[in-house]
C-alpha cells in the first residue's frame, strides 16, 4: 500500500491521452487478430476434423510449429526474418502485430475447433445427411453450430491470450499500450506507476471481454447438454 501511496497519481492522469492512444492500438490489433484466429480456427479445424487430404497435414505442421516456438520468436521471424528472405515481405509494425497474433491464435484455435467438431455426436450428422443435406450443408447447418458451441470455452481462452500477447509488440516498437507506457517511463523514470497502471488497464479490458463472452456463451449454450 505504501508503494501505491508514494505514487504520483496526477502524473498518470496527465498521460491519459497518450495511454488511451496505446490502448486503442492494442484493441485494434486484438480485434483483427481475434477475427482472423476465428476464421483460421474454423477453416483449419474443419479440415483437421474431417481429415481433408493435404490441407489437414499442412494444418498439423502449422499448429505444431506455432505451438512449439515462443511467440516472441515468431514476431521476430515475421518482422526481421521475412525481409531477409525477400524484400516483398517487409511489413509495417502494425501489420506485423496483427499478423503475428492472428497466426498464433489461429494455430491454437485450429486445435480448439478440431476438438469441437470432432465432439459433435455422429447421430446429428447422420440425421442431417439422411434428411438430404449435402455434406457441405451438413457442415454449415449442423457441425459448425454445434461444434462451435463445444469449442467456445477453449477458444475464449485463446482470444484472451491473443489480447494479452499484443503486449509483446513492444519488442518491435509498435506503439500499443505496453509500448506507450514504457516510452513514457523511459523519459520520466516513473516505471512503477506506468507498469501498475497498464496492468490495471489490461485487467479491466480482459475482464470486460470475459464478461461479454460469458454472456454470449450462456446465450449460445448447447440446449441439449444435460
Amino acid at each position: 500500500m505504501s508503494v501505491l501511496a508514494a505514487f504520483d497519481w496526477s502524473f498518470i492522469w496527465e498521460q491519459r491521452s497518450e495511454l488511451a492512444h496505446g490502448l486503442v492500438k492494442t484493441l485494434e490489433v486484438s480485434a483483427i487478430g481475434i477475427a482472423g484466429a476465428f476464421a483460421i480456427g474454423v477453416a483449419l479445424g474443419a479440415a483437421r476434423a474431417h481429415r481433408i487430404p493435404v490441407v489437414s497435414q499442412l494444418a498439423a505442421v502449422y499448429v505444431e510449429v506455432i505451438r512449439n516456438t515462443p511467440i516472441l520468436v515468431q514476431i521476430f521471424l515475421l518482422f526481421y526474418g521475412l525481409p531477409q528472405l525477400t524484400p516483398y515481405l517487409r511489413f509495417e509494425p502494425f501489420t506485423t502485430a496483427w499478423l503475428a497474433v492472428m497466426i498464433w491464435g489461429g494455430a491454437f484455435n485450429t486445435e480448439n475447433y478440431r476438438a469441437g467438431f470432432g465432439a459433435v455426436p455422429y447421430r446429428y450428422r447422420e440425421a442431417s445427411l439422411a434428411l438430404g443435406f449435402t455434406p457441405l450443408r451438413t457442415f454449415f447447418s449442423v457441425t459448425l453450430p454445434i461444434g462451435s458451441r463445444i469449442a467456445l470455452p477453449s477458444s475464449i481462452n485463446t482470444y484472451i491470450s491473443v489480447l494479452k500477447n499484443t503486449a509483446l509488440m513492444t519488442a518491435i516498437g509498435f506503439p500499443e499500450l505496453t509500448n506507450v507506457a514504457r516510452s513514457i517511463a523511459a523519459v520520466t523514470f516513473r516505471d512503477a506507476e506506468m507498469i501498475v497502471v497498464i496492468a490495471i488497464v489490461y485487467l479491466a479490458v480482459v475482464w470486460s471481454l470475459s464478461i461479454v463472452i460469458r454472456f454470449v456463451e450462456r446465450r449460445l449454450a448447447l440446449p441439449e447438454e444435460a
Binding site: 446429428y124 447422420e126 440425421a127 439422411a130 447447418s141 449442423v142 454445434i146 448447447l222 440446449p223
Partner: peptide, 13 residues
Amino acid sequence: MGYVIQQVGLFPH
C-alpha cells in the same frame, strides 16, 4: 425418404 434414427438426432441448437 424420411429417416428416423435410434437416438432421434434432433438438432440440439
